[in-house]
C-alpha cells in the first residue's frame, strides 16, 4: 500500500505496530507519554496502548537505560528514547558497561533486547548539545548494534527489526530527515540489520554515506551526473554490523570511493569505513579512498554549522581529487 509519510510518522508507525504485536514491548523516556515526544515520534501511543506501555520517566537517562536493562532481563523489550544525542551521555555507563556486555559476561545466558532511540546529528540550527553525531562512541563499543536509517521506509523496517532483535540496538534517527515526506509502502520488506544498500547506480566512483549524509551524497551524484560523471551511492544503513560485502563490491565496481559523514572524522565511523575498504579493495582502487567528514571540532553554533557540515561542493571537490588523470 503506497502512502506519503515522513520519517517521523514511519517511526511512529513502527512503534505502534511493535506495541500492538508484542505485549512485552514497552516505550519510555522523557516526554514520550502524553506529549508524544519533543519530535512527536511517540505521538498517540499512550492514548492507544495505555500508560503502562508508553510512559514518561523521571528525568534521568542513566535511570532510563538502567531500568531498561532490568526490564529486559525480566522478559520485556524496552524501547527507550534519549531526547537528543548529547543528552544520552549520562546513560553512557549503563550503555557501555551493561547494555553492551551482559550477553558476553554471562556467556549468552542474559540477553538485553533494548532499543535506544537517539534523535541525532545536526543541520537543524540547534544550539549546543542538540546536534552531536555520536555514532562513533557506540560503534566502538562491541556488543551494540548501531543503525542509522536515511529514509522513511528504512526507518520503519529497521526499527521493527531492531525491536524484534535479541541484541541491543542503538537506533540513530537523523533529526534533519524527520519531516521530509516520502512515497513509501511499509508492507514491502527492506534489507535487514547488517545490510547496506546501493541507492543509486553509477560507474565512475562510489559515495558511501549513512543517516543524514545520504541525501547529501545523492544530491552530489545528481550534480555530478550533469557534469558527466556517474556516481554510485551506497547507504550503509547498518553501521554495526557493517556490510563489508555490499560496500566492497560497490567500490570494486567503480575503483574510487569517498565516504561522507557528518561526525568529526578523527577516529570515527568514517575512518573505519576507509580502513575496511582500503584493506579489502586495495588492488581495485585507482585512488586513495577519501573522506568528507565533519571537522575535528565541537559541533558549531547555528550560524556556523553550514561551514562544518559536509556540503555537496565539498563532496564534489573530493571526487575531483580522485586521480582522474590516471583513468
Amino acid at each position: 500500500m503506497h502512502e506519503k509519510l515522513t520519517m517521523a510518522q514511519a517511526l511512529n508507525r513502527a512503534l505502534r505496530d511493535s506495541l500492538a504485536e508484542d505485549p512485552s514491548v514497552l516505550v519510555f523516556g522523557e516526554d514520550v507519554g502524553p506529549l508524544g515526544g519533543v519530535f512527536r515520534i511517540t505521538d498517540g501511543l499512550t492514548a492507544e496502548f495505555g500508560e503502562e506501555r508508553c510512559f514518561d520517566t523521571p528525568l534521568a537517562e542513566s535511570g532510563i537505560v538502567g531500568m531498561a536493562v532490568g526490564l529486559a532481563m525480566n522478559g520485556m523489550r524496552p524501547v527507550v528514547e534519549m531526547q537528543f544525542d548529547a543528552f544520552a551521555y549520562p546513560a553512557f555507563e549503563q550503555v557501555v558497561s551493561h547494555v553492551a556486555k551482559l550477553r558476553n559476561r554471562t556467556r549468552g545466558k542474559v540477553s538485553v533486547p533494548i532499543v535506544i532511540r537517539v534523535p541525532y546529528a545536526g543541520g537543524i540550527g540547534g544550539v549546543e548539545h542538540h546536534c552531536d553525531s555520536s555514532e562513533s562512541y557506540y560503534a566502538h563499543t562491541p556488543g551494540l548494534h548501531v543503525l542509522a536509517p536515511a529514509n522513511a521506509a528504512d526507518a520503519y523496517g529497521l526499527l521493527r527489526e531492531a525491536i524484534a532483535s535479541d541484541d541491543p540496538v542503538v537506533f540513530l534517527e537523523p533529526k534533519k530527515l524527520y519531516w521530509a515526506k516520502e512515497e513509501v509502502d511499509l508492507t514491502q520488506p527492506v534489507p535487514g540489520i547488517g545490510r547496506a544498500a546501493v541507492v543509486r547506480q553509477g560507474s565512475d566512483a562510489t559515495l558511501i554515506a549513512y543517516g543524514p549524509s545520504v541525501p547529501v551524497a545523492l544530491e552530489a551524484a545528481e550534480v555530478a551526473a550533469q557534469e558527466g560523471r556517474s556516481l554510485q551511492v551506497v547507504d550503509v544503513r547498518s553501521i554495526v554490523p557493517f556490510d563489508d560485502a555490499t560496500v566492497c563490491e560497490a567500490v570494486r565496481s567503480t575503483g574510487r570511493a569517498v565516504v561522507v559523514a557528518e561526525a568529526a572524522g578523527f577516529a570515527s565511523v568514517s575512518s573505519e569505513i576507509v580502513a575496511r575498504v582500503t584493506e579489502r579493495c586495495f588492488h581495485s582502487l585507482a585512488a586513495p579512498v577519501r573522506r568528507v567528514a565533519g571537522f575535528d571540532i565541537p559541533y558549531p553554533p547555528p550560524k556556523l554549522e553550514h561551514l562544518h557540515l559536509p556540503s555537496v561542493d565539498r563532496v564534489l571537490d573530493a571526487i575531483d581529487d580522485l586521480q582522474w588523470e590516471h583513468a
Partner: peptide, 8 residues
Amino acid sequence: AISVPLAR
C-alpha cells in the same frame, strides 16, 4: 519538566 509534571 517540559511536559512531565512534578509527580513524575
